[in-house]
């Protein structure tokens, strides 16, 4: 199954990707055949709760699935290069140069024993930039992500930076080699809300500067609304709804997407009325039954939901911009959300 994107040659193509983790209780199907594309310069968000497979998908694109996990199916292509099955030696030269990743916890992704400036310089020299040139550019990069006194701060160690400043350093390092694709995995989850606002601005600007596409992994629908062009909603290792942010977040079709939005307390109303919830918990990923994974928790589930698996299909009259994997998509479209 291939998703046809509106852009002629998408930058990133993920086709039927599947990842399993081998455990003593059996294989955990973390990602179960997902397909999507990211166009050059586009921001695509993957949202989902813990265990939905969003982070594993990102690691699979980077070729960094931790053992005992392994990619069992699918192809990842970046600008006509096939990354799947690429020898590790070649993959390494791509990482950091063509694809760069920003992690949730900048403290553990920076080496505590080296000066921050040197780490940015190293990110560039590994990929062939001359040392002197890299030095100058490292300072420029630090300035561009809003670190005051960059020449002096470059000589500081990671622990001398606050959480927000560290994440700026990570962004500077990620765009150092002007990658085509930035992957940010929960980049602001560990940060306070006022700092999150600053860092998201910096990330947006850095992405524009580097002329990169951004794949944003997050659980925060507010961040998605502010940053992304398109959004993929994942549940139990599959994409269950995708489309432009406006379509998916304003007119969600899938009961899970609706449930997620409804379960968010609002900043503006304080009714103290019970929040609508999605009953139950996500399924365990050991079994992969031929059924809609949400069916046991879904108030709209009918017999067919329990006996076969829905595929992503265009939501009425919206071929490119909105697709959902729900047998009751048509009924849901009629049933408007009151949010």
């Amino acid at each position: 199954m291939t998703i046809i994107s509106e852009t002629p040659t998408p930058l990133l193509v993920v086709d039927d990707l599947a990842v399993e983790f081998a455990t003593s209780s059996g294989a955990i199907h973390a990602v179960n055949g997902i397909s999507f594309t990211v166009a050059a310069g586009e921001t695509v968000a993957i949202v989902g709760e813990s265990g939905s497979g969003k982070s594993v998908s990102a690691l699979a694109i980077m070729g960094l699935i931790p053992p005992p996990g392994h990619q069992t199916n699918g192809v990842v292509r970046l600008a006509s290069q096939t990354l799947t099955d690429m020898p590790d030696r070649h993959y390494r030269t791509l990482r950091g140069r063509n694809i760069a990743m920003i992690f949730q916890d900048p403290l553990s992704s920076l080496n505590p024993a080296f000066r921050v400036g040197d780490q940015i310089v190293e990110a560039m020299t590994t990929h062939g930039t001359a040392k002197a040139e890299a030095r100058t550019r490292a300072i420029e990069l630090m300035e561009s992500v809003g670190i005051a006194n960059a020449p002096r701060r470059a000589r500081d160690y990671p622990h001398q930076f606050s959480g927000g400043m560290r994440q700026r350093v990570m962004i500077a390092m990620a765009i150092a080699n002007r990658p085509q694709l930035l992957i940010a995995d929960e980049p602001t989850t560990a940060l306070d809300v006022t700092i999150q606002a600053q860092v998201l601005d910096v990330l947006q600007a850095a992405k524009k500067d580097a002329d990169a596409a951004l794949l944003l992994i997050t659980h925060d629908l507010g961040v998605v609304a502010g940053m992304a062009d398109r959004v993929l909603v994942m549940y139990a290792g599959r994409i269950i709804e995708q489309g432009s942010v406006d379509e998916v977040l304003i007119n969600p079709i899938h009961p899970y997407t609706r449930g997620l939005l409804a379960a968010l307390p609002s900043l503006h109303t304080n009714s103290r009325a019970p929040l609508p919830t999605i009953a139950g918990v996500p399924p365990n990923l050991l079994s992969d039954r031929e059924a809609c994974a949400l069916a046991p928790r879904c108030e709209f589930a009918i017999d067919v939901c329990r006996s076969s698996r829905p595929l992503l299909e265009a939501v009425s009259g919206n071929q490119e911009n909105h697709q959902a994997a729900c047998f009751r998509a048509h009924d849901m479209a009629v049933l408007k959300v009151d949010k």
Binding site: S162, G164, M165, V193, T194, I195, Q196, A197, Q198, L200, D201, D220, L221, G222, V223, V224, A225, G226, V245, D246, L249, I250, L261, L264, L267, K339
Partner: peptide
């Protein structure tokens, strides 16, 4: 600073971005 999950409201949101830590 709290982002709104509604993209249309989010784009119109008035933001005060604090400087510094």
């Amino acid at each position: 600073a709290v982002p709104d999950p509604n993209p249309q409201k989010e784009r119109k949101r008035e933001r005060i971005v604090l400087s510094g830590d």
